[in-house]
Nucleic acid binder design. Sequence first.
DNA 1: GTACGTGCAAAGGTTTTGCATTACA
DNA 2: TGTAATGCAAAACCTTTGCACGTAC
Lengths: 135, 135
Amino acid sequence: MKKYGKDITLKQTPQRLAIINFLDGNKNHPTAEDVYRAISRQFPTISLATVYNNLETLKQLGILRELTIDPDKKHFDTDIKPHHHLICKVCRRIVDIDIDFNLNIPDGCKCGFEITGSHIEFYGVCPACRRKGIN
Amino acid sequence: MKKYGKDITLKQTPQRLAIINFLDGNKNHPTAEDVYRAISRQFPTISLATVYNNLETLKQLGILRELTIDPDKKHFDTDIKPHHHLICKVCRRIVDIDIDFNLNIPDGCKCGFEITGSHIEFYGVCPACRRKGIN
DNA sequence: GTACGTGCAAAGGTTTTGCATTACA
DNA sequence: TGTAATGCAAAACCTTTGCACGTAC
C-alpha cells in the first residue's frame, strides 16, 4: 500500500507500477492507447481496461491530468502544475508552455462566474512539419 | 446554389437551411445531438448522419468552428471570430469571452513552432450552480 | 482471508461510412 | 438530367462496465 495524501492508498501491482513509471516525467502527453502499447511490451497480457482503470484512478488522485485538446481522443499529462500547451495543427504534437500569463477577466465580463482556473491552447506548425512544407 | 467564398456552392436543401438557421446567432454551443433534436421538431425524418454531414461541411467552409472543450462530445460554435470560453465545471455550460488577451510567447519558448492562433478556456462555477451550492 | 486489481468480453456513446433513394439546380 | 444531399443501417472508434479470477497486503 502506498499512501497518496491522507487516507488514500493504492495496491502496488506490477501493472500499476509500470504505468506510473511510464508516465512519470513523460512529456509526450500519451493517450490510453499509447500507454497500453508501451506497457504491453513488459506485460503482454495487460488489458486496455486495466490501463483505463488506472488512468481514471490516478486522475482521481490528482496525480495526472486529462487533456481535452485532441477532438479524437483523450491525452494524459503527468505534469499537474498549471501550464499551457502548444499543438501542431499538422502532426498534432503537443508541447508544454510553462509561462504564467496572469490572465484576468474584468468582473463585468465574467457573467457572474467564479473563475477557478484557465488553460491556453496555442496552435501552430512545428519545426518538423514546417520543413516538410505541409502547411 | 448559394455561394460561400469563391468556387464553393451548396445546394439549399430544407434540412440544411434549417440547420444553418438554427445555428445562426446561437450562443449555446450545441452538440450534434442538440442540433438533431432541434431540427427533428420541424423535420421528424431528418437523420443524425445528415446533421453530422452538414456540420462537417459547414466546418470545412469555415462557417462554424468545432470546440474541443468537452471531453465527451464535440460542440459547435457559429461565432468564428477569435474569442475564448468560460466553462462551468458543474453544469458544463459554455459562455463566450470576447476579450483580446494579446498573448505572446517569447521566441525562446516556442520550440520553433510558427504560432497561428490561440484559445483560452476559463474554468469556474456559474451563478446558477453557485446558488445551488454544488461547489 | 478480504478487498482490491486484473483481464476478458460485452456494452455504451459518439461519430463516420456505404449505399440506395430523393431532390435541388 | 446529373450531381449532390438525404436517410437508413451498419461499422468504427474510444471508453466504460460486469464479472470471475487472481493477487497484494
